[in-house]
Computed example of a mutant assay.
Amino acid sequence: MLLALPFRGTWRVRNSPARRVPSHGTHLFATTYAMDFIAVRDGRTAPTRDWRTLLATEPPDRFFAFGLPILAPAAGTVAAVHSGAPDHEARRSPLALAGYALTQASRAGGGAAAIAGNHVILAVEGGYVVLAHLRAGSVRVRVGDAVVAGQEVGLCGNSGNSTQPHLHLQAMDGLDPFAARGLPMEFRSYRVSGRPGIVDRGVPGESEIVEPG
């Protein structure tokens, strides 16, 4: 599936399928080729580091990604929306991350909504696209709405199974993530930090910093 990057500015790629498949270590919830994007400035995800960064949780609004517009990566129709999930405290501390990992199974047991948090699913040419972990109260669209590529659908948040504000993006061949299969994604017209020119079509690599071309 060929998509546009669903944001403005510079974002770091995590869990890229260019590194491994399944990209998130599992085929569950059609995440086989899913990708994560974290907004960065000068390579940093947040302007602040203090004792909470090392030992505790942090408010999500510390992070550059929190509240940034998330855009439709292709024209389509809104097929599903989940809203109302809270934004969690963020975790960079190894101690906070260790405790969070212990509750991973219980979140997975809560189903796709517990994992994805606030999210929008678009029916597009070739399948469905999920934009997940949106900010509480930020979803701008309703089921049945027609959207164009580049239209704002919500804001980046830290809802669902998320340790810091970021966008989770995946494509699948059906609306139900329990039954669907993940589909590979490619992106058109983007830049990679440190490289000249524009990538006409490709899959960003792990840890690359990308922005729309």
Rank of each mutant, 00 (worst) to 15 (best):
P184V: 08
R91V: 05
A108I: 00
A112Y: 01
L155M: 11
G126V: 04
N118F: 00
P17K: 02
N161S: 15
P22W: 12
G9C: 06
N15W: 09
G150A: 06
V153I: 13
W51E: 07
A46I: 02
L3T: 02
R62N: 10
D50S: 13
S207Q: 09
H82C: 11
E206M: 00
G117W: 00
V143A: 08
T53N: 11
I38A: 12
V139N: 03
A74V: 08
T10Q: 14
A34N: 14
P47C: 09
G25N: 07
Y128C: 04
S23M: 06
R181L: 10
A18W: 06
R62H: 12
V13R: 00
P212M: 01
P204V: 01
M1A: 13
W51Q: 10
A65T: 09
A123W: 02
Y33T: 14
V199N: 05
V147Y: 03
V13E: 00
L5K: 14
R107V: 00
R181N: 13
Q170H: 15
D50R: 13
P17V: 01
L2V: 13
P59C: 07
L28A: 15
G205V: 02
H88P: 05
L5G: 13
Q164Y: 12
H82Q: 11
P60C: 11
T57I: 04
R201M: 15
G174C: 11
